[in-house]
Write a protein that binds this DNA or RNA. Sequence first.
DNA 1: ACAAAAGTGTTACACTTACACCCATGT
DNA 2: ACATGGGTGTAAGTGTAACACTTTTGT
Lengths: 233, 233
Amino acid sequence: MRVNFSKEDFNVAIATSVVLYGFDGDDLKILIAEKAGEPFAGAHILPSSVVHINEDPEDVAIELMRRITGSADWPIEILNAFAEVYRNPEGRVVNVAYYGTLQLNETLSQDLLRSEYKWVKVNDIPPLAFDHNKIVDYSRERLKRRVKRRPIGFSLLPKEFTMNQIQRLYECALGRDLDKRNFRRKLLKSELLLETDHFVRSSAKARRPSALYKFDEKKYRSLTLRGYDFVYQ
Amino acid sequence: MRVNFSKEDFNVAIATSVVLYGFDGDDLKILIAEKAGEPFAGAHILPSSVVHINEDPEDVAIELMRRITGSADWPIEILNAFAEVYRNPEGRVVNVAYYGTLQLNETLSQDLLRSEYKWVKVNDIPPLAFDHNKIVDYSRERLKRRVKRRPIGFSLLPKEFTMNQIQRLYECALGRDLDKRNFRRKLLKSELLLETDHFVRSSAKARRPSALYKFDEKKYRSLTLRGYDFVYQ
DNA sequence: ACAAAAGTGTTACACTTACACCCATGT
DNA sequence: ACATGGGTGTAAGTGTAACACTTTTGT
């Protein structure tokens, strides 16, 4: 074992990138930015930040989300370290990547429109600089797994949502269509949902309004931690 | 976004640690070492290595396994980066951790006995230096998931093995008892096993010999990649 | 014959999947 | 009245879990 560091070993930098998912009712999207400064000026990248020598990457990732969205209160989870040798031409950089989920609402959408960030559909992601496409792919696999096994999907939905919205979200995350009746039955059986007495019309052309549901926060939290096997292979 | 590195940011070192699993027929074990040199001289640690500035952590981890076991040919998978600020008193060190599985046999066991490493049962792991206990816990969760969803368990077994051995291995990995009849039925249905015409007696006291099985390597590989849902919740 | 571990089947229940029509409402 | 999307039930098949006794063999 080589367990003793020499001075030359301390010549690596840490960065963090965040894959931030949002769902607008129709499509699952992630946030991307344009890079300022060389290398790769103008290229598309994930929201990213240098992690200074005395900082925790998770704290920096949370702060990054706060700067982007105005709130630090979104669920976040580490993805992995991306640490190959030649991923950054400036020097050896280890990227500790995270992914997070947020609830898109009008205000946030508007604020983001005026920012340096933009939403792109997960099925329509442009080439990104560094190995950021690899990080995105990795995060999509993770999201797929999470959606299957934990009620994580709800963190992308507004407080109250229709069955069709949540089904559409699951279809986006899993990349395939689901049967409406089976989906509803399964979700209701989980007892994670509470009915509200609210309704919305899903579009101008829609006639009959949809019932709105919210989730049972207590149940939600316990199932988020221990998994609940909402199994779709 | 802070995307421009300054000179001071390049002051981090990379290390890698490997959680190396072996199964001796009765117990699932991992390899630990005693640390040479300060800090923590004499403390128990995971097999670990500095990753020099021009090296890929995975290559270093594989080389570490080769130095320990004499072979670089064991399955290995990245766990995560462990990158908190104060994990190493020598300076900022990011640990890119891996776990691997190997087939314990007599020769390898004897070689390892004469080395600086020793096997400890996964239910009996001593306090380790740095945050290595955290890495071990993380790897056990990963192994549990893998065992449930992929035929990864076989990489811990000898070429030919009995049903009782593989059941015991699954019980160790999952941390609970399994029903013998259900286990066999499930495993045979997967069509992953081939009968051999060999038998062994499992102990001196055992009378009736056990049938030995091997796995269908072609099927094994395809199922390892795409998962096969050997589901035990 | 006995001790020891190997090996074997059935049943009840839960879950999954496939499938098509009526309902409520606004215009 | 009609157009639109919302909402509902059943049946067949598959998988899971719980359960105890017989078989084979060496001593």
